[in-house]
């Protein structure tokens, strides 16, 4: 557990290593990044720091002269940096650099890799709960293809044959669209740079997936979207957040009820709300829903990782997630991100 005052850290180096450390520190209680510097003005960590409202600069000496720093972490990889720090560190603030910084960096990379694997595994487990819905949606057009083909086999009217062929092509297109949606969701998140992701599109795509989660198909959906609510992130991760939350709503209503999806954009923030008319969440459960592996669902229906993953991803992008619930009336989740639009 964390004890005492937070450790105020200055990060030197905002390349890949610095950015990963920045993200890790930013979400660690007990660690406060008070500044980050890199000689390269385009270093990815500087941009990320600004998104997280952390002072970013290109002037290492200036950063070192500030008060209140508890630790300097040097991941510049620049052999001359150690000496530079020594010259500009009159108060003798502790420095983590060289081999120790590399060790830390290795541990962080390892942790990030394990987390990525866990998230991916959770995604695939969720697809497992979608099997029946997917089978249903694919088998319907497949059935049409089969019966049209059977009909064509003993049909001699070229007009009818042509119509059937056209209908078969359309049915196959529908199946292809379903498979495409699934592969988009199942795809391993790219390690590439962050891009603008439209929350409306993510919610719509998530709803398609979430519908697979129940046998019933009696959900009335109301959309109330603002134009272009764009956030910066990896599309696969933003989609995973939306799928997890919308799926919970659909499951809570047991496939029957009303789901309201809305997006807003104001004061540099983008907000998405997902409201269901399910049974709500009891007070004593509410505290636990974001805990990893907490689930009230039977095996095969839930892993207990959905909200934990959603929160981890949202926080990584400098956002927040909260919930309000009324027993017997329903639950509303709210996602908020810094706007990228």
């Amino acid at each position: 557990m964390v004890s005492g005052d937070p450790i105020n850290v200055i990060l030197l180096g905002a390349g890949t290593g610095g950015t990963s450390l920045l993200e890790l520190f930013a979400r660690s209680p007990g660690v406060e990044v008070v500044g980050i510097a890199d000689k390269n003005p385009d270093a990815p960590g500087l941009k990320r720091a600004r998104e997280l409202h952390i002072p970013a600069s290109q002037d290492v000496a200036e950063l070192l002269s500030r008060d209140g720093t508890g630790l300097i972490v040097d991941v510049t990889g620049d052999p001359a940096m150690a000496e530079f720090i020594a010259r500009h560190n009159p108060r003798g603030i502790q420095v983590l650099g060289g081999m120790t910084a590399r060790l830390l960096w290795n541990l962080v990379q390892h942790e990030a890799g394990i987390q990525a694997q866990l998230f991916q595994a959770a995604k695939l487990a969720t697809i497992g709960t979608f099997t029946s819905g997917i089978a249903h949606d694919i088998n319907n057009p497949l059935y049409l293809v089969m019966s049209l083909a059977e009909d064509m086999a003993d049909e001699s009217d070229p007009g009818v044959i042509r119509d059937h062929a056209r209908d078969i092509v359309q049915a196959v297109r529908r199946i292809a669209a379903i498979v495409k949606g699934l592969t988009l969701y199942a795809r391993v998140s790219s390690a590439d740079d962050l891009v603008g992701v439209d929350l409306n599109g993510a919610l719509d795509e998530a709803l398609k997936m979430a519908r697979y989660a129940t046998v019933l198909n009696e959900i009335e959906v109301a959309r109330d979207y603002v134009a272009r609510p764009v956030v910066r992130g990896r599309p696969e991760e933003i989609l995973q957040v939306c799928v997890n939350i919308v799926t919970n709503g659909v499951q809570a209503m047991n496939g029957r009820g009303a789901l309201r999806l809305s997006t807003r954009r104001e004061d540099g923030l983008v907000t998405a709300t997902i409201a269901d008319t399910g049974p709500g969440i009891p007070r004593d459960v509410l505290d636990k829903i974001f805990d990893p592996f907490f689930t009230t669902k039977e095996p095969g229906k839930g892993t207990g990782l959905g909200l934990h993953i959603a929160r981890t991803i949202v926080k990584k992008y400098g956002g927040l997630i909260d919930v309000s619930s009324h027993e017997g009336r329903g639950t509303t989740f709210r996602l908020q991100f810094p706007s990228a639009g």
Binding site: N140, P141, Y143, L144, M146, S147, L148, E150, D151, D154, A171, N217
Partner: peptide
């Protein structure tokens, strides 16, 4: 609820 399925069943059984 799917017109496709109704069409398939109708085609098959009518034949």
């Amino acid at each position: 609820d799917e017109a496709d399925v109704r069409k398939s069943v109708t085609m098959s059984l009518t034949k």
